[in-house]
Design a binder for these strands. Structure first.
Lengths: 150, 150
DNA sequence: TTATTTTTGTTGCAATTACAACTAAAATGC
DNA sequence: GCATTTTAGTTGTAATTGCAACAAAAATAA
């Protein structure tokens, strides 16, 4: 059967490695760009939702956001409707970084899709969304201690 | 244009997270399964090649392999033709782990491809290999200090 | 209501990750 | 030949990552 785990892992590590190197000149440390773009696009998002979207441990996300806050890139305000939740927003400083990151991501996306026709690009994006949906439930289950049988 | 970076990243993190949790009962720590399967399939492979295939920093791979060696899972022998190189091989203990990892990976791959026809699976695998090729040169270049213009 | 469970977030660890900087050997250039 | 560059691997250091274990608020149950 076709194997997709390995290329997906290699592509993800390569793109992440490139971004981390390129964003060092923005004083962003490893992984921070991921959180930044999501918060910029979904202002008021809370930690657990962000971690679920990105598929990282919530404690990892927590510390990344703490650092972004310390560095004045995001700020957090208690939710008016739920005292447990802290809504996350971009500062002006953070807003200024967003287009730079977005431009880099767009470029990497173009490089990744070189030689693909528009129809192929759409089809690949559709496939990947289906794969993500397929795997999301298992990720949550295993994270919560569920044992998969195979 | 179609966006593929985000789902690829999310899928890779989800699958990696699942594997790392499931392989803890094999006494494998984070990431080690990646190196193990490649060494099992390409006995005698050297560090730099392994790092290039996996798209991780060579110092990361070096320390992962040092630990696998300490734990008796792989062993290294100097190359007979090049005194710089150290060839990496599986021990009997490591060989015993391979089928377990392989079975898990196969299962995750099946979950990921649920709802895909055989033709779609092949097509997705083909697309991903093309993307990997597209991005490999940029990864190496940026890793070596090259500055991309965009 | 009151008790229990789920949601949301935080710290304490222990480990991986990777940029610098460095050796030693091989390959290349002149 | 001999000097320079490239290949291959290691260690120092600093940071992210994430499993446990916890606390507080909200939702659910009884």
């Amino acid at each position: 059967m076709a194997e997709i785990l390995r290329p997906i892992g290699a592509i993800a590590r390569a793109l992440d490695g490139i971004s981390n190197i390129e964003f060092k000149e923005l004083e962003l440390s490893r992984g921070q760009y991921l959180y930044l773009v999501r918060i910029a696009e979904q202002p008021g998002i809370i930690l657990e939702r962000l971690a679920a979207i990105l598929k990282v441990d919530k404690t990892t996300a927590a510390r990344a956001i703490q650092k972004l806050e310390r560095n004045g890139i995001v700020e957090r305000r208690p939710s008016p409707t739920d005292k447990k939740q802290k809504q996350i927003f971009m500062t002006a400083k953070g807003q200024a970084l967003y287009p730079i990151i977005h431009r880099e991501n767009t470029y990497s996306n173009q490089v990744a899709l070189q030689g693909f026709t528009p129809a192929e690009r759409d089809q690949l994006a559709d496939y990947l969304n289906r794969v993500e949906t397929n795997i999301a439930a298992d990720w949550t289950a295993v994270k919560h201690g569920h044992h998969r049988n195979y």
